[in-house]
Amino acid sequence: MTATPIPLRKCLPQLVLGGVLSLVLVLGVAFLSARPMWQSLPEGTGLVRLSLTHSGVRNCRARTAQELADLPANMRDREVCERRRAPIRIEMDIDGQQVFATEAAPSGLAGSGPSRIYQRIELPTGPYHVTLRLADDPSVAGFAYEAGFDINLQAAQSIAIDFDAASDGFYLH
């Protein structure tokens, strides 16, 4: 058994006082729900994002004649490849100055997935020349893909640089 609740009409002072106090709290919450504003990117700057997924080459070798002969006829692939892919190497220059260089390992537990790059570079507004280089085969010297772009970065603008090997490499979105 519990005590009978007090009828609401007898609690008018609490309703009014409590209501005013609760309203002040709600208005405080509403204010902090949007203010103060957060400056995520400094004024007068824009953003260049380099994002790509690309698979490094696989380390393959030709099967010997004996190896081929030992296999069933339907499984005689001339090449045998390791499951793990090679890492990719990438460099990025802005106005001749290197701003980013990394070697990205392949993804996945067995290293069989593509390498992934995601890099944010905040820059003051203005014109820039961006140069990019990518190598996906450690056995070959130099870079297999190279590209250069002239960009004119505006305040709060986002420029995304992507990569597609089938479409000649780097491109801007």
């Binding site: 949007a34 504003m37 957060w38 995520s40 400094p42 709060a156 603008q157 986002s158």
Partner: peptide, 8 residues
Amino acid sequence: TVPAQVDM
């Protein structure tokens, strides 16, 4: 664009 300033 990048949302430089947001109503946090």
